[in-house]
Amino acid sequence: MFSQIALATARQLRAGTTLVVRTAAAASTSLTTRSAAPSFLRRSGLVFQQRGYALTRSKKTAAESHDTAATATKTNKTRSTAAKSKKSAAKGATSAAAKTKTPRAKKEAAPKKPKKSKAAKTKAPLTEEQKLKLKIRLYKQRALFKEDPKTHRATGWAVFVREHIKDVIKEGDALEERRTYFAKLAPQWKELSAAEKDRYHAKADKAHQDGLAARAAWVLTKTPMEIETANYARHALKRLGVTPIVHLIPDDRGPKRQRTAFVFFCMSRQKDGAFVGKSAAEVSKALAKEWKSMDDAAKQPYIDNAEVDRERYHSERAATTAAYAAA
């Protein structure tokens, strides 16, 4: 039997195939059937499988698949290389374009809007009320109310109230309730002795003198023209009804104010002594009535005196202005 196997093996080798010996149990999964094997081999329980052709074909298929894969890989590499080269070429072109920018075409200038005429720019005219408000605001700025130190004369009673108001006042009280505090302090003021009241009066006088000194020092920081303008603005506010009383700023550095023809008439009538024993209100009313009843010929001497005084004022004011401008 061994000789038969060797003979069959030799034949297979000469035919160019390989012979695989398997058991009968594994023969069921082989590529060749039992009927294809010789009978004496089937009886012996051995199965010979001829794999020469199948192995050759499988090698050829594997080689072909390997060549196909290699070709596909080369193609992919070639494509990726070409894509990379295209990208690099595009980047180079972009950088070159960025380095050498072509000047953009200038946009056409928009048509200029027609200029508005001066008549169109002018605002609506102010009303009389608006003009009055602007005038009052200007006069208040020139009057120097905020800068002027207070020099009003106070009394001993006012100083006493200022010092003792904190003893009776309460936080959160209304204005009507605070007014009742003066009634509470009045009995205490009456109970003070004359010496204590004199002490409060002396404090009030000292406060007034300190205020006058502070104002005198403040006046020196202004020019005579500024003080004159402030006094004129205070007179104007009195005429407009903004302030009830005119508190002028005293200043002896500038020229004396010019006097009108009516002032010269009042000065001459007071020298005659026609209004002795009468109040200032009665005298002013009588003089105003008499001045209105006079004709132009009677007023002419006083008008001439006013014209001379006006020239004097302007000459002195020009000299003062030039002196302070040079300083």
Rank of each mutant, 00 (worst) to 15 (best):
A70S: 14
S80F: 03
A72C: 06
A72H: 11
S65F: 00
A69K: 12
K84L: 15
E64C: 01
A82H: 02
A82L: 07
T75Y: 00
K86D: 11
E64D: 09
S80D: 11
T75N: 04
K59V: 06
A54C: 01
R79M: 04
K60R: 14
K91Y: 03
G52F: 03
S88I: 03
R79A: 15
D67L: 09
S58A: 10
L55Y: 08
D67S: 10
A54D: 09
S85A: 15
T75Q: 05
K74E: 12
S58V: 04
G92P: 00
S58H: 12
S65M: 06
H66E: 14
A89E: 14
T73Y: 05
T71F: 09
K87V: 04
S85P: 00
S88C: 03
K60P: 06
A62M: 05
A72K: 15
K59I: 05
T68P: 11
E64N: 06
S58M: 07
K87Y: 05
R51G: 01
E64G: 02
T71M: 09
T71Q: 12
A69V: 04
S88K: 14
L55D: 15
A90N: 05
A82T: 07
A69H: 08
A72V: 15
A62R: 11
A69N: 10
A72S: 13
K59M: 05
S88E: 12
E64R: 10
T56L: 05
T73G: 05
S85W: 00
T56G: 10
Y53A: 12
K77W: 03
D67N: 08
K91P: 00
T71H: 08
K87C: 01
A62V: 06
K77H: 08
G52K: 05
T56C: 02
S80H: 05
G52N: 04
A63R: 11
R79N: 14
S80L: 13
A62D: 09
N76S: 08
T71S: 13
K74C: 10
